[in-house]
Design a protein around this nucleic acid. Structure first.
Lengths: 166, 166
DNA sequence: CACAGTTTAATCGCGCACGATATACTCGCA
DNA sequence: TGCGAGTATATCGTGCGCGATTAAACTGTG
């Protein structure tokens, strides 16, 4: 498409970098607004899940957010410490920890009703454009996850260092 | 567009979440491949910049990656420790630290020539589709950054807690 | 020359995010 | 009944990423 050789490609032509930067920009937009109610961005995602359906297991939340227990556990403990959620071991199956909102956690919802709208406005895109972009990103995520899982670019074996050739 | 009320929106309809998840998927694809040559993803971005143009200041690199010195300094120190780059104070203006590749850092390039191609293949998208997506994400990033800068959703003042209304 | 203001990096503390590993529990099956 | 396999969560260490602050060096103006 362009005459760039492998290695001298400009970062601006990397899809991964565009995604990385857009994500940072979102974070920088959200962070100060969420900080006013004492939330971080991943915590807000958890709250959004619980607002739509209360009482879920750690694993359920983790699967939706693509996060494992080593990220979820401390995150949820901080949220418990902030009084937003409760963590209770299931009595029937003690491996499972159920997460549910406190009254304070439910109340927080009313203080953030305008946020999705503000973000939508800040994006400078129409609902249709946003929908298309979400679709493209979802497709990309599925493809990348599948490729990571099957190890498409695993390369040889004993050399274990080079990723040359396509 | 759909009848969802603010607050019960499914996460799958959040553009921020689609971006966040796609970024995670990229990271999960890159991380094991880069680990084989001892790089992390942000370090790979720095290397890519230096491969296309050697010897840049900390600030220059940070501006391109949208990272500040509090992220750059330790990252670059780790890369220096790994023998990939050198950090040298400018003799004329001692505030400035210039970053340049070592021979080892330059050599690493040849072990990653296939990576952009592998990522492109893993994306499951044509070059044209990727180009369009990069364009949309760049536009989004610019808009979000601008909105964050001007504080579009700053809300009132003394209450300092609610973000209600659009 | 002095001194305020600006620029450039560095430092500190906190919260993700993940690889590797550990622990506790449940289930199936001999 | 007891044991191995599988499941759900937790722990530990490392590396970003950022807000707040600090420190050092430069610049411009009187």
């Amino acid at each position: 498409m362009d005459g760039s050789k492998a290695g001298d490609a400009a970062l601006s032509e990397f899809l991964c970098f565009a995604t990385y930067s857009a994500n940072q920009a979102f974070h920088q937009f959200y962070a100060p607004l969420l900080a006013r109610v004492g939330l971080t961005y991943p915590q807000y995602l958890v709250m959004t899940l619980l607002w739509s359906q209360d009482t879920r297991t750690v694993g359920e939340i983790g699967r939706i957010l693509n996060l494992q227990s080593n990220t979820m556990t401390p995150l949820l403990k901080r949220m418990e410490g902030a009084g937003l959620i409760e963590r209770r071991r299931d009595t029937a199956d003690e491996r499972i920890v159920r997460i549910s909102l406190t009254a304070q956690g439910r109340a927080l919802r009313d203080r953030l009703t305008g946020l999705p709208g503000a973000v939508a406005a800040a994006s400078g895109m129409t609902a249709e454009e946003r929908g298309e972009l979400i679709g493209a990103l979802d497709r990309l995520r599925r493809n990348m996850t599948e490729a990571a899982r099957t190890g498409s670019a695993q390369g040889g074996g004993q050399d274990a260092g080079s990723i040359s050739g396509t």
